[in-house]
Each structure stands twice: as C-alpha cells, then as structure tokens.
Design a protein around this nucleic acid. Structure first.
Lengths: 368, 368
DNA sequence: ATAGGTTGTCGAAGCGCTTCGACAGCGATT
DNA sequence: AATCGCTGTCGAAGCGCTTCGACAACCTAT
C-alpha cells in the first residue's frame, strides 16, 4: 500500500476541497476515473462555461477556442455526466418506451418497433428507457415525476387505457402506438387497420371470392379491447357489405391444433368458402398446412391474404399476399414526433399509415 | 393575465433566492410542477437530510418521524429527481441492455430476455436502458463514460467481440449473455449449448437412430462466429462419435424454399436419415411440412428434435420434442448477478445453464 | 451524579453541469 | 475622438439530492 498523502495524487491544480479525498478514492475504488468539464476547461485553458457552450452551441465561440476545446475533449476522452446534465438542464435526453409484457402476439413486430425507436432516438441524441407494462399506470407517474425521461412512447394501447388520463394530465410529450377510443389531446401512430381490413376484402372480392373467412386474433385480444383487432374487423365487414361478399369471422388462438378446430368449423358452416384473411401470425403456417392436407390448393382452390410483417409473408410455405405491418415506420415516426415536440415544434395529431397490399402467390381468381 | 408579483405565488416559505422566478415560471411553462425533497421536508417539519435518510434507510430514523415523512411524501406525490440523485450518489440505478440490431435470428428469445431483464431489474429498483448494437463499442464508452448506467448486459456476443476489451478495462460490472472465446475477467450466462447438442444426439441415438441430420442456423451465423452455433455443433459431433451415430450438418437460412433445398440435399447424400436436430426456429415448420409432403411420418418414419423456445415447440404442427432455450432464466440471472456486484457481492463467473430435453410427440424409436 | 455510549436529527458542502448577466475588446458609426 | 453594438469569454449561482460530521437528548453503567 502506498503511504503518500492523498493530495500528492492530484492531477490538476483546481481547488477542490472535497475532491482530494475523492481523488484518492478514485484510485482505490471500483469507480473508473471520470473526466469532468472543469478538467477539460483547464486543459484547454478556458473557463468551464466556455466548454459548455462549445458542447451545446448555444453561444458563439471563436473557431480557435472551439478547436482547442474539442482537442482537449478528445485527448482526455471526456464524456459529459448524464446525471449532472439532467439536473442542470432538466432534460434527461431519454425517451421511455413502454412495451407490453405479454408475448402472445406480434412479438417480431414489437421487437422491430423497439429497435426502430432505439436507433431513431440515437440519431437525435436520445437514449431509450425500456419499461414493461407490468407496472401499469404507476410507471407513467414514476417516469414523469422523477424526470427520468423527457417523453414516452406507449405500445399496445387498449381502447380505454388507464394510462391515458395520466398522459393528458402531464405536460410531458407522448406518442401512442395504437389507437384508443378517445384520442383527444393525444398523439397516436398506427396502421390504418380499418383500411387494411377493407383492402383485404377488396382484393379477394375483386378476384371473385364471395365467401370469405377471417381468421382473427386470439379471443383474449378481442376481450382486452385492443383497438386494432376491432378496427380491422370493422373495415372487413363494411367493405364486404359494400361489395356483396359474405364474411365469417372466427377468432383463433394460433397454433396447429386450434387452427384445425377453427378451420373445420368454418367449412362446416360455409362449405363454399374460398377466401381467407388471416390476422394472427401464428395461425398462418398451420392454416396453409391444413389446407394442403385437405387437398385444397393455394391459390387454385382457395386464396389467402395475411396481415403480417413482410418477413413472415415471404418465409411462409406459400409466398403470401399480404398487407404488411410497417413497424419500422411507426417507431421512427413516433420518435420524430416526440423530438419535434421537445423542440417546441409539433402538434397533437393522429397519424394513420395507409396500408399497402402486396400480391404474392397465395391469392388468385376464384374458381367458377 | 394575472398581475400579481411572482412571489405571491409562493407555496412555501423556503428561502430560495432564484426560485421565485423559478416558481412563477413553473406556472407558465410546459413543465409540470415537481415536488422536491426540500418541500417534503418542510411539509413534514424536518430537515432535508432526514427525508433523504427515510428514503434510503441509511441511518436510523424514529418511527414517528418516519411516518410523518412518509405521509408527506404521499400527500405531495413526491418522486425523487433521477438526475439529482444520480449526480449526488454517482449511481443512476439504470442497467444498460445492448441488443443486436439484426433480426435474423432468435427474435422471440431476445424479446423474452429483454422483458425478463426489465422486470427483474425493476424488482431491484433498477430501470433498463435499451441500446442497439448499431453504435458498437462506442456505446460502451458512452455509457460508462457518462454514468448513464451503472452496469451493462450484452447480448449476442461474438467469439471475439470487439466490445470485450472495453468491458475488461472498465470497472463497471457487466454480464454477457453468450460465451466469447476468452472469458477471463468476464461474467457470462448462457445455455450450455455443447451439452444441448450432446443431449439431442443422445436422445435420438438411444431411440436407435444411426443417421442424424442437423439443420443448423443460417450460414451467416456461423461466419459471424457466434459461439453458440459452434458449441452446439461441437456437442453434437463429439457425442455422435461416442455413440457411433453418423452426423450430417447443414446450415439453413430458414423459410420454406431454403429448407426444401437443404432437405433434398440431405436425403440425396444420406437416404437413410431418420433423425433430425433443428436449431433454426424458422426452419422448423417448413421441415415438418416438407416431411409430411414427402410422406414421411413424424415420429413413425423420422424423428425431429428442436432447439427452440417451448412456445414454438408446443405450437408447431407436431408437438416437438425439444431442448428449450431458457430466455427468462438467463435474463433474470444476468440482472441478479449485476445487482449483486453493484452491492459489492458477487464474483466473475461463467454460468452455463444445463439443458433440459422435453420429450413430446415428434420423436420415437427408429424403424428397424 | 458523572462519564460513556447510543440514537435521531440537522446543517453544510459538494456532485458536474447549464445558464445568466457582466464585461473586455474590437471595428463601425457619427 | 467619443459612442454604440457586437462577439467571445468568464464568474457565479443554482439544479435536487446524498452524505459527513456535529451534536442534543437520552440511557446505561459506574
């Protein structure tokens, strides 16, 4: 052990009454050495505020000074301390992302959104805090109350979500991915599921299909009043009516066994069914397998349209005609809206992304 | 507009030279009112430090005082300011989680790990910061340098990962999910993929299968030197040799078309193949469909063992015999190790979770 | 009664940063 | 030559919290 008095370790001549012990602590403790603004300032021979202004660009700084400071920052490997910055500026530069706990649906989509949110946030200088739905409304309180995050993004919003009043109350910007019943005072981003439903029916109807079955999400999803499922159904039904097609909607858990039961019931009730719309990813492959097994060829005998990420549509055993879920776009849009709001731009708005149907090889003209 | 002088808005009698304008600002700005420690202290009639000690429990406080303070906290809806706390204590109470950018493998597993990490972290009072691999090693520097997080968890670690030297250098605790080539000075958690491979072969060999085909991950995964793929293969091969089984390993992109090609080649080369080990989730269902299509019954003619999450194994068109990937356990373990380290307990260690094989209906005795 | 040890509370300093007002220095304007 | 406005820089205060040392008040052994 070293017996030098602690102050002999001082690297700087700054007067820091407390920090002499702090300094010596740094060499023995587990904390790695942190370079501070003041040290950069000293190294560059300027004041701390100057360094701060170089960093933030909030005041003009001469080119020479700026370069000197930047040089020092690089040499010392300086990184501003996040806590101090947050305290002084009351901005954490963090966006909270609240994802649902359950993994019963849309896992790849959620992941894609999360990744899009994280990468987009970084390009704007923000980090992302991951919250699970578990805490419920308390998480909203905690985050807004503690200044942990500057803004939040909520996924898997239910029609009458209990977190909404809190969001309306706070002045912290937020974006919902999904569409609640009452959107007043809120910003939402979602696929236009109503138009999606309409588009699917339209595609099948135009191909001459009159009896169309809809394989929906698991019953739990409808019970939970997740808006998108109901809106899709709404779009499907109204367009079907307009076009004179008969629609049969059946929720389905997904998986092979559940799909088998559901499919049997469908053909039982409507033997002439030739068109399928599938909204549940985990029912897609089982459906195709079962149809094949029953000797119904896709797309010769029956047509299938899926609502799913492109990756699923392409990797399936039949390349699926599908409306894709624009996960990346939603994530990116949500972040960009928040950043705009944090910069004082941007208004509350509801953005419904127009669906796009890609025709692949799972749909074709109805046999006549 | 109100014309009262700003100080008439003062809710408290604290002497806060600056805060009079701060106070008036609060009523006009977008920031929602934030309750501070000092206000709680005043409301409870104690000093700020007392409130702090009530919160942290680091000094004994009389029951009466504690209750009074807790009451005030509740009444005022106080939440400690995260930035201030981080600054003063040099602890952010945040754990960084670095997830891979690519979505070419294991998406559900990653999601499950992320959720397990987030919920476990919360039970220990930590929040989770989501980083994507995009930034690469810089993210490590940024996070450790800025004190944004107290610790980090890295997923998708490659055998010779460029982030590792940085982790060894820093004194910030970290856990890898995955196993690099050199684990010295690091803590890692992973499924014992070597044992997993061995277990799969063993199961098939015991059932009498002599010709076993392995449907591996996409070629890119092997090229990237992700440890788990190679370790699995290693386990498969050595156990196969011990038990005198013939092994044929073929990487596979996943999806129906790629699987069809791969399968054709396998039967071409080893027509007598009766056992399959599948490591690529997105190849599972295509494989089953193709086998069915070729008139090979599972498990009567061929047996299939998968390495995948239980959910996939159960939802497949045949209930799959499988070794499950303990995503939750890994996530939970990683967090708990970090928390232990942050509390001054805990050592570097490599934890390999023992694989468990669940027999379902996709495997049975080889036809003789 | 006194010394010694607890226990519970307070005051003050400081964490590293941002930001405001002050002002020196300078060229441009009268 | 005196004045005005810039531009670039600095000093100081404060963000809300933690933590350390100080110290009353009490309790126990002498």
């Amino acid at each position: 052990m070293d017996t030098h008095p602690p102050w002999s370790y001082c690297r700087t001549t700054l007067t820091r009454p407390y920090s002499q012990c702090a300094l010596s602590k740094r060499f023995t403790s587990l904390e790695s050495w942190m370079v501070t603004l003041a040290e950069v300032a000293q190294h560059a021979g300027v004041s701390a505020s100057t360094v701060s202004y170089v960093l933030s660009g909030k005041r003009s700084i001469s080119a020479t000074t700026r370069h000197r400071v930047e040089q020092s920052i690089r040499e010392l490997g300086y990184h501003p301390n996040a806590g101090a910055r947050a305290l002084a500026s009351s901005r954490s530069n963090i966006i909270a992302l609240m994802i649902p706990l359950r993994t019963d649906m849309y896992v790849p989509v959620m992941m894609e959104i999360a990744i899009a949110v994280a990468t987009t946030a970084r390009t704007h200088g923000y980090d992302v805090l991951l919250l699970t739905g578990e805490e419920g409304p308390d998480a909203v309180r905690r985050v807004t109350g503690s200044g942990l995050a500057d803004a939040m993004i909520l996924m898997d919003v239910e029609l009458d979500d209990e977190r909404l009043p809190l969001l309306r109350d706070t002045d912290q910007p937020s974006v919902l991915i999904g569409l609640p019943a009452d959107t007043s005072g809120l910003t939402c981003v979602d696929l236009d599921f109503r138009a999606t439903g309409a588009l699917c029916v339209e595609h099948l109807a135009m191909l001459g299909h009159r009896d169309i079955a809809v394989i929906g999400e698991a019953p739990a999803v409808y019970e939970r009043h997740t808006g998108f499922a109901e809106r899709t159904l709404d779009g499907l039904r109204s367009r079907a009516q307009e076009l004179g097609a008969r629609l049969l909607h059946r929720p389905c858990e997904g998986g092979y066994d559940a799909m088998a039961v559901t499919l049997a019931r469908i053909f039982d009730e409507r033997p002439g069914t030739t068109g399928f719309v599938v909204q549940n990813e985990s029912a897609v492959e089982p459906l195709l397998a079962l149809l094949r097994q029953q000797g119904r060829a896709v797309p010769e005998d029956v047509s299938v349209v899926a609502i799913c990420p492109d990756q699923v549509a392409v990797q399936a055993s039949v390349r699926l005609t599908s409306v894709s879920i624009p996960a990346q776009e939603m994530g990116r849009h949500a972040v960009e809206h928040l950043v705009a709001k944090l910069d004082g731009r941007g208004e509350d708005e509801v953005v419904l992304i127009a669906p796009e149907l890609t025709v692949r090889t799972s749909s074709g003209p109805a046999a006549s």
